[in-house]
Simulated assay, not measured.
Amino acid sequence: MNTKKYLLVAIYTSLSITAFSQSEVTEKEIKAHISFLASPEMAGRFPGTAENKKVVAYLIKEFKKSGIRPYGKSYTQDFTAKIRVKKGTTDTPRVLTQNVIGFIEGSDPLLKQEFIVLGAHYDHLGMGGPSSKKPDTTGVHLGADDNASGTAALLEIGEKLATNRKQLKRSVLLIAFGAEEQGLLGSKYFVEHPVIPLQSIKLMLNMDMVGRMNAEKQLYMGGAASFNGGVELMKQLGPEAGINPIVIAYDVGGSDHVSFYKKDISVLGFHTGGHPQYHTPEDQASLINVAGEKLVCDYVYKAILSVANRKEAIVFVPEKKN
C-alpha cells in the first residue's frame, strides 16, 4: 500500500470509530435510545415476544458499535421466565428470554480478575397485566422511565467506559436483564448461573427508573454502606457531578441488585423517584428529563471509575441488625 492510500485508510478508520463510539455521554443518544425502546412499535418489551427479541438485537448491535465484547462466545444468556398471571389463574405460561451481557476487560494484570457489574432491566409490561397499576386497561405500557431510562444509561455509560477502557484497572460486566418485571428473573438466573465466579464480583450497580430527576437534582441510591467507604464516596461525587445524592446506607429496594445482595455482593441501586405514571401506559418518552439522566450517567460513570481503580480491596459489609 502506498503512503497516500495508507493515510486515506487511516483517516477513514479514525472517522468511522469516532462516528460509532463517543467518549462522552450525550443527551442526543440518551433520547434516541429511549425513543426506540419506549416506542409503541416495541409494544412494551414483554418477555418472549417478537418485540422483546428486537430489543435484544438492538442491545447487541449497540454493544458491538461501542467496541464492547461478549464474555465468551455469545452476548446472550438464555433462560425460561415464568410469566405472572392474575390471581386465581391456573395457567402460568413460560417463555424463553435473555440477559444481554457485555464485557470490558480491565488493564491491570491482577485486578482485571475482579469485576464491577453495571446492570439495568430492559423488559416491561407489554399490554399491561397483573403488575399494571391499571390492570383492567389493555394498552401498550411504554415503560420509558421503567426501564428504558436505565437501559439507555447502561448503553451510554458502557460506551464511555469502553472508549476509556485503558483507565479501568478492574473489569466491567454490563448486563441488560430480562424479565425483571416478572420477579427479578433475569438477575436471579444470572447469580445462579454466573458467567464469572460470583466471588470475583466486587460491586453491582443497578439503574432502574433514572429518567425523572426532579428540580432539586436528587438521585436516590440504596446499599451504599454495603461496601467499605461507599457512603463517603457516593456523597463526595455529588457536587462534582452536579447532583444531590440521597445516599441510603442499606434499604436496597426491589430491583435486580437485590439478587446480588442476597449473595453477599456489595450493591448500589439507583433511581430518581416514583411518579403517577409508574406501571401505566402514560410512562412515555416525552416525560423523561433527558438532561437529568445525563447527570445520572456522568455520576455513575465516575463511581465506576473510582471503584474500579481503588487500591484497597472492595469488601462486602453486611447490615448489622439489632
Score class of each variant (00 low, 15 high):
R94W: 11
I30A: 10
G178Y: 10
F20V: 04
L233M: 12
Y12T: 14
N52M: 04
A10H: 07
G178V: 07
G129M: 09
H141F: 14
F63A: 03
V55Y: 00
K302R: 13
L118Q: 08
I201A: 13
Y6D: 15
N99C: 05
A50M: 01
H257N: 14
F177A: 02
K188I: 12
F270W: 07
T26L: 13
S74K: 05
T92Q: 15
K302T: 08
D256P: 04
N164V: 07
V300Y: 07
S23E: 15
D91L: 15
E282D: 10
Q277H: 09
D251K: 11
V56N: 06
S35T: 10
R165V: 01
H275Q: 11
I196M: 12
V296C: 07
F46K: 02
T163D: 06
N244C: 00
A179P: 14
V252R: 06
H275L: 01
P130C: 13
F227Y: 01
F190G: 07
K31F: 07
R212C: 14
K134C: 11
T97E: 12
A38S: 12
K294I: 13
V56Q: 06
K263F: 09
V9A: 08
L305H: 12
L118P: 11
S200R: 08
F227Q: 00
L161W: 03
K4P: 11
A148T: 00
Y299I: 03
P93D: 13
N309V: 06
S107A: 14
S35F: 04
F63S: 02
F190E: 14
G274L: 05
N309Y: 04
L295F: 00
S16N: 13
S66I: 04
G102V: 01
V191I: 15
T151V: 04
T97F: 10
Q167C: 02
I304R: 08
S286C: 03
K86D: 15
Y12C: 15
V56I: 10
F79C: 11
P197I: 06
K31T: 02
T49I: 00
S259A: 10
G230K: 02
G186R: 07
D136M: 01
N164Q: 03
K302H: 09
I304W: 06
S266V: 06
H257Q: 10
I243W: 03
P130Y: 08
M213V: 05
G238S: 04
A38M: 02
S255D: 10
S107I: 03
D298F: 08
N228P: 08
G222Y: 06
E27Y: 11
G102C: 03
F260T: 06
H121M: 15
A303F: 14
Q77N: 10
S14C: 12
N244W: 03
H193R: 12
G119I: 07
K294H: 04
G242Q: 01
F46N: 01
Y301V: 09
A313S: 15
T163N: 09
A303Y: 08
T151M: 00
